[in-house]
Amino acid sequence: MQLFPALFFLLGIPSGAPGAHIVQYMYGCEWDDETDEVVNGYRQIGYDGEDFMVYDQKTETWIAPVQQAVHTKQKWDKDKADLAYWKYYYTQICPDWLKKYVEFGRSSLMRKDLPSVSLLQKTPSSPLTCHTTGFYPDRADLFWKKDEEELHEDVVKGEILPNHDGSFQMSVDLDVSGLQDEDWGRYSCVFHLAGGQEVSKRLDKRDIRTNRKTNDGGFDTGLIGGVLGGIAVLAVIGCIIGFFVYKKKHPKGFRATNTCEMSSLAGEDPAVKKGSSEEQSMLKTSA
């Protein structure tokens, strides 16, 4: 089940009240793309950072969290036409808008990329690093395990960091100073992506990339040559691609932009226009 929430915020300053005050609107709905069920609809109004009014979709009434909102609640509960509109909005209009947003952003919302996994070590006495890069989204976990048990001791986990291409990277270190040679094969580095996908790499000395000196006085090119060489190649390719994309999009330099290009596609959420006048009126009488 993939649950998609829609959440909208509006801010305003009510008139008729001394000083500056903040009105907050939060409304939205949740849709299950497998069952096509609208799970929940909600509309909340805040005043100066505190709850003021909450719409209850199940009972089709308003809830007043504070005494100052009771008068407005009683008034709005009598407006059956308005309550019927909000019921229709949260069961029909809001889900339709949410489905459009999901479709427009499907490439990013549904994107899942598994990473490449590398074993890195500076010297034989240094901690062994399991490094993953290129995964998306950032809802992921990385850990070491021995046999089938996750390790918590002698382990240092790094933060999830962004890459320039929008993907992410993460690493976790394991202290191998007391590790016996016969036990190396019992250890694995496991990457877990939200949704259940996993990548596991068993610990093998032959797979470790390092920049330590070799017997001939040089350096093992596994880490330095591989990483820096890869970065250099990607940088050159990125520059070439960027140049042609720029030339294609800007064949004659700058051009005027039609600010209305997106209006016909996106339209306007009727809840924004619907809620503004009546809720401003509420605040005049209740503030």
Results as ranks from 00 to 15, higher is better:
residue 2 Q to G: 03
residue 3 L to F: 00
residue 8 F to C: 02
residue 15 S to E: 13
residue 18 P to D: 11
residue 19 G to I: 04
residue 21 H to A: 04
residue 21 H to W: 05
residue 23 V to I: 13
residue 24 Q to G: 14
residue 24 Q to Y: 10
residue 25 Y to I: 00
residue 31 W to T: 00
residue 32 D to G: 01
residue 34 E to G: 04
residue 35 T to H: 09
residue 40 N to D: 12
residue 45 I to P: 02
residue 46 G to S: 04
residue 47 Y to N: 04
residue 48 D to E: 11
residue 49 G to M: 03
residue 51 D to T: 04
residue 52 F to R: 00
residue 54 V to I: 11
residue 62 W to N: 00
residue 63 I to R: 05
residue 64 A to Y: 02
residue 69 A to E: 02
residue 70 V to W: 05
residue 72 T to Q: 15
residue 73 K to D: 01
residue 80 K to P: 05
residue 81 A to K: 13
residue 81 A to Q: 15
residue 85 Y to Q: 07
residue 85 Y to I: 06
residue 87 K to L: 06
residue 91 T to E: 15
residue 93 I to H: 01
residue 94 C to K: 01
residue 94 C to S: 06
residue 96 D to S: 12
residue 96 D to W: 08
residue 99 K to H: 13
residue 100 K to V: 07
residue 100 K to Y: 09
residue 107 S to P: 02
residue 107 S to E: 08
residue 109 L to D: 03
residue 112 K to L: 11
residue 113 D to P: 03
residue 114 L to E: 07
residue 116 S to L: 07
residue 117 V to Y: 14
residue 120 L to N: 03
residue 120 L to C: 04
residue 123 T to V: 04
residue 125 S to P: 03
residue 125 S to E: 14
residue 128 L to G: 02
residue 133 T to K: 06
residue 135 F to C: 02
residue 136 Y to S: 06
residue 137 P to W: 00
residue 145 K to R: 12
residue 150 E to F: 00
residue 154 D to P: 02
residue 156 V to I: 09
residue 156 V to P: 08
residue 157 K to A: 14
residue 170 M to C: 11
residue 173 D to K: 09
residue 174 L to H: 03
residue 179 L to W: 02
residue 180 Q to L: 15
residue 184 W to G: 06
residue 186 R to T: 05
residue 186 R to Y: 02
residue 190 V to N: 03
residue 190 V to F: 02
residue 193 L to W: 00
residue 196 G to D: 10
residue 205 K to A: 10
residue 206 R to W: 08
residue 206 R to I: 11
residue 207 D to K: 13
residue 211 N to W: 01
residue 213 K to S: 15
residue 213 K to M: 10
residue 218 G to W: 13
residue 219 F to K: 12
residue 220 D to K: 00
residue 231 I to W: 08
residue 231 I to V: 12
residue 234 L to A: 12
residue 239 C to G: 14
residue 239 C to T: 15
residue 244 F to A: 06
residue 244 F to D: 05
residue 245 V to S: 05
residue 249 K to N: 10
residue 250 H to R: 06
residue 252 K to T: 15
residue 254 F to Q: 10
residue 254 F to N: 12
residue 259 T to E: 12
residue 261 E to R: 15
residue 267 G to S: 08
residue 271 A to G: 11
residue 275 G to F: 07
residue 276 S to F: 14
residue 278 E to Q: 05
residue 280 Q to E: 09
residue 285 T to V: 10
